Amino acid sequence: MKINKMIPVFLLMFFSLSLLFAQEVKMKSIFNGKNLKGWTVEPAENIWWKVEDGLLSVKNDPTKTGSTLWTKKKYKDFIVELDFLMGDGVVDSGVFLRSEKDQIQIGISGSLKRDMTASPYIPGKAYPVEAEGVPALLKNDDWNTMRIKLVDETYTVWLNGKEVMTYTSENMPEKGPVGLQLHPNNEMSIQFKNIKIGNL
């Protein structure tokens, strides 16, 4: 009788663990550290994005033209994770989610003239919310890790392991690429590595 009573408990534990493992997201590298395979540069004539020693670097040209590096693949619900290192100048970069409409800021806001890292920027709405606790988390002279989870139209951002922002957008495309931004009319550089994505 004691064994029979233990079987349902064992099965419950087994299925709970199975469900936990099933929910783990398999992250896949989308930057090979050698070249820009799997990515598209806009404008097409790339003079900004370079790959060297496993790092993706971007820097404004003398005309201060901006650029976006897009994944060729489109994604629906996903988690994207990357490491970034602030470079020279006034860093104004970010991660685009499915289109240029929704962006997670990295660095100084051109309009607000202060750091808005991990906050969403939306044309017409500017920064509808501000990420919390960023000054204590952000490392200006070392590598930072950003993790963004997008489900339907809601995205959540973690900076260096701590959740700092959640926002629900409107009228987002159901599916689209992920982009990295080099803001125009600026003098700056930034580096990226360990760029991964997992479908949800």
Results as ranks from 00 to 15, higher is better:
3 I>N: 03
7 I>M: 02
7 I>T: 01
8 P>H: 03
8 P>M: 03
11 L>M: 14
11 L>F: 11
12 L>Q: 01
13 M>G: 13
14 F>H: 02
15 F>R: 00
16 S>R: 00
19 L>S: 13
21 F>V: 15
22 A>G: 07
22 A>V: 10
23 Q>I: 11
26 K>P: 00
26 K>F: 10
31 F>C: 03
31 F>N: 02
32 N>Q: 05
33 G>A: 11
35 N>V: 02
36 L>T: 02
36 L>C: 04
37 K>S: 15
42 E>A: 11
44 A>N: 06
48 W>H: 12
51 V>M: 09
52 E>D: 15
53 D>P: 01
61 D>I: 14
62 P>Y: 04
66 G>M: 11
69 L>Q: 01
70 W>V: 04
70 W>C: 04
73 K>W: 00
74 K>F: 00
75 Y>D: 03
75 Y>T: 08
77 D>S: 08
77 D>F: 06
77 D>H: 08
79 I>C: 07
83 D>G: 08
87 G>F: 03
88 D>H: 02
88 D>G: 06
90 V>P: 00
92 D>C: 08
93 S>T: 09
95 V>M: 10
96 F>Q: 15
98 R>H: 08
100 E>N: 12
101 K>L: 05
102 D>R: 12
103 Q>H: 13
104 I>M: 12
105 Q>W: 08
106 I>T: 10
107 G>M: 13
107 G>I: 12
108 I>K: 04
109 S>E: 02
109 S>K: 08
113 K>D: 12
115 D>F: 05
116 M>L: 09
116 M>V: 14
119 S>Q: 04
120 P>S: 09
122 I>F: 11
128 P>K: 11
130 E>L: 13
130 E>V: 15
131 A>I: 10
132 E>A: 14
134 V>R: 07
136 A>I: 07
142 D>Q: 14
146 M>C: 06
149 K>Y: 05
151 V>E: 14
152 D>Q: 13
153 E>P: 01
154 T>G: 06
154 T>D: 13
156 T>I: 05
156 T>Y: 02
157 V>M: 06
158 W>Y: 13
158 W>N: 10
160 N>W: 07
162 K>D: 05
162 K>G: 02
167 Y>S: 10
167 Y>T: 08
167 Y>C: 11
169 S>E: 01
169 S>T: 08
170 E>C: 03
171 N>D: 13
172 M>W: 01
175 K>H: 06
176 G>Q: 06
177 P>D: 04
178 V>E: 11
179 G>A: 12
179 G>H: 09
181 Q>F: 07
183 H>T: 14
184 P>N: 12
185 N>K: 15
186 N>H: 03
190 I>G: 05
191 Q>I: 00
192 F>Q: 05
198 G>D: 04
199 N>F: 04
